[in-house]
């Protein structure tokens, strides 16, 4: 029997890796994948607790998260395509038009 703590630990690891990915990577695709990883970490957490408490509500939320993530993927990909078309690059650091600070 794998303990609840292990599940929680894995999902937290997934979330943290995703978060660090979002912060540290430059490529928009990788950032997107990291966001998906964070979502999946949360999903795993929810499913675990659903099983543990014999309550189906978290499972329903998980299904909703997955379906919304699918819809989000479509928008995300189209936005990435548009960004690429305008700058011929997917490096996040060059999209600084909205910067308020001194231009680097």
């Amino acid at each position: 029997m794998i303990s609840l703590t292990s599940y929680a630990f894995v999902s937290m690891m997934l979330f943290s890796i995703g978060a660090i990915g979002v912060i540290s990577r430059k490529n928009i695709f990788v950032i997107y994948m990291s966001i998906e990883m964070m979502l999946n970490g949360i999903n795993l957490f929810l499913v675990t607790f659903a099983r543990y408490h014999f309550n189906l509500d978290p499972q329903i939320i998980t299904i909703m998260v997955i379906s919304i993530a699918a819809a989000e993927a479509a928008i995300f990909l189209s936005v990435i395509i548009l960004l690429y078309r305008s700058r011929k690059s997917l490096d996040t650091d060059i999209f600084t038009t909205l910067s308020q600070g001194e231009k680097s």
Binding site: I31, T92, D93, L98, S99, G101
Partner: peptide, 20 residues
């Protein structure tokens, strides 16, 4: 104001870290 404006540097990753 100029000092504060440096936070809004349009660096998405920085925003993400800040949020976190």
């Amino acid at each position: 104001g100029k000092k504060v404006a440096m936070i809004q540097n349009a660096n998405v990753r920085f925003y993400a870290a800040f949020m976190l």
